[in-house]
């Protein structure tokens, strides 16, 4: 089953009066249960593409369907609801809310979806156990290491059981060993629950975790490598 279906995606930015083509007609399919990596040099359009796939940026041309829904055809309100229920986010800088505890941070997506606070925190504690942070639920993010913070961010991305998880450089702020642990956690998640995972990265150390790797350059996908057979 296709999680993401992009056809002829074009995105042009206006930069000081100059038109800059960030995406020049992207075609990309991502299946459920697949870990897709977007790689390429800075400015090649990876972040723009992941933003379009995640429904937080509108393309100028083409269509992008996530689980069969055309995001561009949705109203802002529908898009918000769709993101809240179907998409999980993992960021390079973790982006945890500094004044909330670990459990409260993880609860946020459930609260956005209207789940009661007590129920949300119960689920948060449960998922934190799964990522090995069951003893850190009342800690503030600033009291955790980088690897622990990223595990909290992964727990936050998973707690509302989204079908698609988008990750922006999830290991670039981590050392090799911690990065490896985090990737293993993400990979297991995909395998266990048949989710789709899109990761934007420069980090060649984690390329081996991908099922497929899309290399981008100058707003286009220049090569897609299938590495699933190697696993």
């Amino acid at each position: 089953m296709l999680a993401v279906r992009c056809r002829k995606i074009v995105k042009i930015y206006d930069s000081g009066g100059q038109r800059v083509t960030a995406l020049g007609g992207i075609d990309l399919d991502i299946a459920t249960g697949e870990l897709m990596m977007l790689v390429g040099p800075s400015g090649c359009g990876k972040t723009t593409l992941i933003s379009v796939i995640a429904g937080i940026l509108d393309q100028d041309e083409g269509s992008c369907e996530v689980f069969g829904k055309d995001l561009a055809a949705m109203s802002n309100r529908e898009k918000l609801k769709f993101r809240a229920s179907h998409i999980g986010f993992v960021f390079q800088a973790f982006n945890l809310l500094p004044s909330l505890t670990v459990a409260e941070n993880v609860s946020v997506p459930l609260l956005i979806n209207g789940i009661r606070r007590a129920e949300a925190e119960r689920k948060a504690n449960s998922i934190l156990e799964q990522v090995g942070l069951g003893d850190r639920t009342t800690f503030l993010p600033s009291q955790l290491s980088g690897g622990q913070q990223q595990r909290v961010a992964i727990a936050r991305a998973l707690i509302h059981d989204p079908g698609l998880i988008v990750c922006d450089e999830p290991t670039s702020a981590l050392d090799h060993e911690t990065g490896h642990t985090v990737m293993q956690l993400l990979k297991n998640t995909v395998l266990q629950s048949n989710r789709a995972l899109v990761i934007v990265t420069h980090d060649s150390r984690i390329f081996s975790f991908a099922d497929r790797t899309a290399e981008m350059d100058d707003g286009r996908i220049v090569k897609i490598t299938d590495t699933s057979a190697a696993h």
């Binding site: 995640a54 937080i56 309100r77 918000l80 609801k81 769709f82 993101r83 809240a84 229920s85 986010f89 960021f91 800088a93 982006n95 809310l97 500094p98 946020v108 997506p109 956005i112 979806n113």
Partner: peptide
């Protein structure tokens, strides 16, 4: 601002 952006990306409405 980044935290507000994160909440927006995760589906929090402007009203909230």
């Amino acid at each position: 601002l980044r935290q507000f952006g994160v909440l927006k990306a995760m589906g929090t409405s402007n009203r909230i």
